[in-house]
């Protein structure tokens, strides 16, 4: 009996390492696939080169890095205020029953596949932009809008949880001093929920950076550094997804190298998010 117990424990411990092992395996293969060409071309040339023409030997991914930056920043600028406002409304202003219906609804909507968002962006948003704002319609703006809608449920949900976690004493104390609801929210509740909300934003940021399919459908995918929101753009993720199907040799390796860059960015974001969430808990 005793021997069996310790055997079970050891077996479970080995299995428990599966997630860590998988992570290591992913890192190993991505790096093995992508590092050689980065070294060969030189990391600086790779990261800062502005020409991506892999069939002619040009492997600069700066346009894609800039593209990812623009699109992600746009998604945050458009999405976070709305998500935060929605979370505040649900947490502070709406009645219990409204919150109980809307929150699960939001989480349900978070499960909608990204390709559906991209598709609707393609058939509804792109023509609209083309008609009213000019340009090809396939643009940084289109991608940012689609991503903003996609990260809405996530950021709203996490921010809502953070706001709900603020003890009611904070609100009651502020209201008792004569402050209005908005003043209470702004000066008492929001600061207290700050780290939780920040964690939610970083989560949304991670999703935006990693999103592929939806962006491909609306961004235009030109390999030039975008100079205005109406210019077409290609992100790091789209770069890989668009060309992996037919790339070979060094071209393929360059795509793996793009994966390396992406992987590092995501891991850095994870660490930051962990640190922020940890700090909030200590408080």
């Amino acid at each position: 009996m005793k021997g069996r117990e310790s055997l079970i424990r050891r077996l479970l411990m080995v299995v428990a390492f599966s997630s860590l092992s998988l992570l290591a395996l992913i890192a190993l293969f991505i790096f093995a696939g992508g590092i050689p060409i980065m070294v060969e071309e030189g990391p600086v040339e790779f990261l800062a080169g502005t020409r991506w023409a892999p069939t002619r030997g040009h492997f600069g991914i700066l346009p894609m890095i800039v593209g990812s930056l623009w699109v992600t920043a746009g998604a945050l600028v458009l999405g976070v205020p709305v998500a935060l406002a929605c979370a505040i409304y649900l947490s502070e202003l709406a009645s219990e029953s409204v919150g109980r219906v809307v929150k699960p609804a939001l989480e349900l909507l978070a499960g909608i596949p990204s390709v559906v968002y991209g598709f609707l962006g393609l058939v509804l948003l792109v023509p609209l932009i083309r008609k009213f704002l000019g340009g090809p319609g396939f643009s940084v703006l289109a991608a940012a809008c689609v991503l903003a809608v996609m990260i809405l449920p996530t950021v709203t949900s996490v921010s809502y949880d953070a706001l709900r976690a603020v003890p009611s004493a904070y609100r009651e104390g502020s209201l008792a001093l004569g402050a209005t609801r908005w003043q209470t929210i702004r000066m008492s509740v929001l600061p207290a929920a700050r780290s939780g909300i920040l964690a939610g934003v970083i989560l949304g940021l991670g999703r935006a950076v990693g999103e592929t399919m939806a962006v491909i459908m609306v961004a235009g995918n030109a390999t030039l550094v975008p100079l205005s929101p109406l210019d077409p753009v290609r992100t790091l993720t789209s770069n890989i997804a668009l060309e992996l199907g037919y790339a070979a040799g060094k071209h393929r390796e360059a795509l793996f190298a793009t994966g390396v860059v992406l992987f590092l960015i995501i891991m850095a974001l994870n660490l930051v998010a962990g640190a922020v969430a940890g700090r909030g808990k200590v408080r």
Partner: peptide, 28 residues
């Protein structure tokens, strides 16, 4: 430490974008 490592692995995996999984799956 063991548990922290496992949790780190799990949380990191959760944040990895699907295209990276796609590339990994392709390679591996």
């Amino acid at each position: 430490r063991l548990v922290s490592l496992i949790r780190f692995g799990t949380e990191s995996l959760a944040g990895i974008p699907s295209i990276i999984f796609g590339v990994f799956g392709f390679l591996f």
